[in-house]
């Protein structure tokens, strides 16, 4: 009963703090509004996207300039409506970002807290593995794995990214846990016989969650970036899957003068990509500030 009340209070306080942070920071307010607008646009736009948009080829209507043939931003090189392609691509980016961020956050919270809590040889061994993996060139390893797979489905890509990109987050959670483990409340819980998993998830986790929230947002944005970059180089999603990286290949396929004069080929998806990645990171920062008790009290 009492814990439930506390949780409600926390939720309400979080929303109040969140608005207060947004009021203080005009830029964050603008980004969050843009991000929400983009989300709504994608969600509503979903209903107009034909299911074959990735694989269709309508050569007669391909590469139309904006404002022609009933297409506001023209058509892509496969003849699909540009805006609808962009919506489908942005949706895939968001799915990939969330998918990878969820996998990595679950791995890092569970593993990082256990490593930090128990210490000893578990800590020594896992830190050696993590340090080793962190200096490896992840983007090159991913490029090799992706290129050998000859084009991935979204879910395989999420799985591979999630299972390879966790070390930095695990290390972060471990550091956070280490700073909590020696506090009095943990000692008190240990002495009173609370099992370790309860100490971890009801004691330590709420205290380190603000930073985990912003790390989640950062991972989300980074994953979108990695997928877009590698798909752009040709080592990512398989042909026929809509992706902002795939759309941006127009940049490498055309000459500089074409890119300069035909801005509509690359500018819209670049803007969407920027709003998406920057917006998510800034949203994460605001959420961290809003949920960090120590900062909001002062």
């Amino acid at each position: 009963m009492e814990t439930k009340m506390k949780k409600q209070r926390f939720g309400a306080r979080f929303i109040k703090n969140f608005w207060r942070e947004l009021e203080k920071d005009n830029l964050a307010l603008v980004t969050v509004v843009l991000l929400i607008a983009l989300f709504l646009f994608i969600v509503i736009g979903q209903f107009f996207v034909p299911s074959n948009i990735g694989t269709m080829s309508d050569i007669l209507n391909a590469n139309l300039p904006p404002m022609s043939g009933g297409h506001i931003l023209g058509t892509t090189d496969s003849g699909a409506d540009f805006i609808l392609t962009l919506i489908a691509s942005a949706k895939n980016s968001i799915i990939i970002g969330f998918g990878v961020a969820i996998i990595i956050t679950v791995i890092s919270v569970v593993a990082g807290m256990i490593i930090g809590y128990f210490g000893g040889w578990i800590d020594w061994l896992s830190m050696r593995i993590i340090d080793f993996w962190l200096i490896m060139p992840l983007i090159m390893i991913l490029a090799i794995i992706f290129s050998t797979a000859k084009g991935l489905s979204i879910w395989n890509l999420i799985l591979i990214l999630g299972l390879t990109s966790w070390p930095a987050s695990v290390r972060l959670v471990r550091t956070l846990t280490l700073s909590e483990v020696n506090r009095d409340y943990v000692d008190a819980a240990k002495i009173s016989g609370t099992p370790w998993y309860k100490i971890l998830f009801t004691g330590i986790f709420p205290n380190i969650s603000p930073t985990i929230i912003s790390d989640f947002a950062l991972t989300l944005a980074t994953s979108i970036g990695i997928e877009t970059s590698l798909t752009f180089l040709g080592f990512g999603l398989k042909q026929g899957t809509n992706s902002i990286g795939m759309m941006l290949t127009v940049l490498s396929q055309n000459s500089a003068s074409t890119i300069y004069t035909q801005w509509w080929l690359w500018l819209p998806e670049t803007i969407v990509l920027i709003i998406l990645t920057v917006g998510v990171v800034i949203l994460g920062q605001v959420a961290r500030r809003a949920s960090d008790q120590r900062q909001s009290v002062s």
Binding site: G225, S229, F232, L248, T270, L273, I274, V278, V281
Partner: peptide, 8 residues
């Protein structure tokens, strides 16, 4: 610059 993929 850190959020947006740098190739853009």
């Amino acid at each position: 610059t850190s959020a947006v993929p740098s190739f853009v």
